[in-house]
Write a protein that binds this DNA or RNA. Structure first.
Lengths: 199, 199
DNA sequence: CTTTACCAAGCAAGCGCTTGGTTTGTAAAT
DNA sequence: ATTTACAAACCAAGCGCTTGCTTGGTAAAG
């Protein structure tokens, strides 16, 4: 999945200098916040001087944008693949919940957290750009929830449900412990029980 | 409610210079973020020079702390008052949901948003201090949810449920429109339907 | 011999905060 | 009623530091 996207030029190779920079930026932006992270912090993390950053990105904000963009693109593809395996409407919703939790709590977690918490630091153009990518992602969700609604699995309006779910799932980053007693699948089932009536 | 807390010295009078400063800070911190808001922005908003801020607060971080502290104190009292009126376990949960939504989407919304999004900008001491105030607030929630669980209104573990709900409700600040077709009560009922089985 | 990736040095602007002094509000003393 | 005393609120100026970013040049790779 990742390899395919890299070879297609959609996502930067994580082993390249630029790719390592994006990953380091995701971690730093999550841990210290975008504003509190200096270009010197960023450069030190990948072993270069601060001025050299601007060979790869024209300014600091573009680094933030790249972090967010690659996270969305990767997770949209992951979700599409998972949906292809799911059969029933309930399976699809569960698959989406699992994917979203995995993206938030797994490898791309730093970038996803940045996507949620550092939105304001993007300029108008970048916000518009990322918003476009998010629309694709959100369409996958809405299609699945509408289908669940038609199957009477869901009582609330799908739009409202999606938004309440977005909050509930995003927030897990603030409390869920990867090594605790509850594994990701159980968390996903708990979240599903909020959304659907049966099961 | 507010008057009582002001007269008891728990909350700063919003019409005083310091009070207006706290309210302006809440708005600016929400709209631009804490780091992006300068002490000059802050001072201009209340019509003084930047240096004069430090007569009221010893540093910028203390302003952030005051914003958060007063929001929690006020909303804890509001919740306590609402709980006193609720009879059944389901009523209590609905009352808490309404209170939390009102605090996020109403007058104290700016401060509550800051509380969620600017946590990292507090120093260690302040985080500890605010955490203590949050514990009181959260205890009210946990008592109500445990009661609902015992009454078989709730299937999930109350701790997990509270955390999923926290996210779902906090997130409303990013999409709910005050003047849209759905009023706060209907939103609250939708949120309740996530949490409890009946109704 | 051109392109890519970096370094070395530093600039201009903006930041939080300090300092010393002036105004304003308040209340007791005359 | 006027004066005296004092603290609270604010101004004017600017210091020391950090910030994102630029510039001109070098090393290495193909």
């Amino acid at each position: 999945m990742l390899k395919k996207l890299v070879s297609e030029g959609i996502i930067t190779d994580p082993s390249s200098a630029k790719g390592r920079l994006i990953q380091a930026a995701a971690r730093l932006f999550r841990d210290k916040g975008y504003e509190r992270t200096t270009v010197r912090d960023l450069a030190a993390e990948v072993g270069i001087l601060s001025g050299s950053l601007f060979h790869h990105f024209k300014n600091k904000e573009r680094i933030l944008r790249a972090v967010m963009e690659e996270a969305i693109l990767l997770n949209t593809e992951t979700m599409r693949a998972a949906l292809a395996q799911a059969l029933t409407p309930e399976d699809k919703v569960l698959a989406l919940i699992k994917c979203e939790l995995a993206s938030i709590l797994g490898d791309t977690g730093a970038a996803m957290t940045v996507l949620v918490f550092e939105w304001r630091s993007l300029n108008e153009d970048s916000q518009q750009h990322i918003l476009g990518l998010r629309d694709i992602y959100e369409t996958l969700w809405m299609d699945a929830l509408k289908e669940a609604k038609e199957a009477n699995l869901v009582v609330i309006d799908p739009f409202i449900l999606r938004r309440l779910l977005t909050g509930a799932l995003s927030w897990t980053v603030n409390w869920y412990e990867q090594d605790g007693k509850m594994d990701l699948d159980e968390l996903a089932r708990n979240a599903l029980s909020l959304a659907v009536k049966s099961s």
